[in-house]
Amino acid sequence: MKVEEDYLDRLKKHVHQDEVGIEMQEIESYISRKTAQSSRARNGKYAIALFALLLLGGGVFLMQLLNNPKTKHKPSTATTAFDQTQLKPSISQSSVAKSAMIKTNHEQPQSVVLKMDNALIKPATELMVDLADYNNIASPLIDIADYENITSH
């Protein structure tokens, strides 16, 4: 008999005699336990996914609500804000700017125009033009009521 065959015979005998000691019940309970665990883990994952989905849905709904033109808050426009009886409708931003330039004798009236852009949203009586940067003006604020005086120059 070859040496390796002899060895294999003894190995076979040893393996079949040796008891590993794993019971069938252990396997059954292990499978049951693990199946229950994975089921619980799966349910937990579903719950987390559902919660995340709800959060996302709520976020999207809020975004749509805020961007909806019907519900969106709009500042009043110039035509509604200006008191037409007090202001001449012919006064445009450019003419005001030109007037301011004449009044202040300054070469850069752009900032005045910008201020007017902001001022347009205010009611006519409160409309003030900030000209603090212009050195030639004694008072930093000009009441919009003086527009007529400015344009008359």
Binding site: V20, G21, I22, E26, I27, Y30, I31
Partner: peptide, 8 residues
């Protein structure tokens, strides 16, 4: 034992 459990 571990391997048999895992296999099953």
């Amino acid at each position: 034992k571990d391997i048999v459990n895992e296999t099953a």
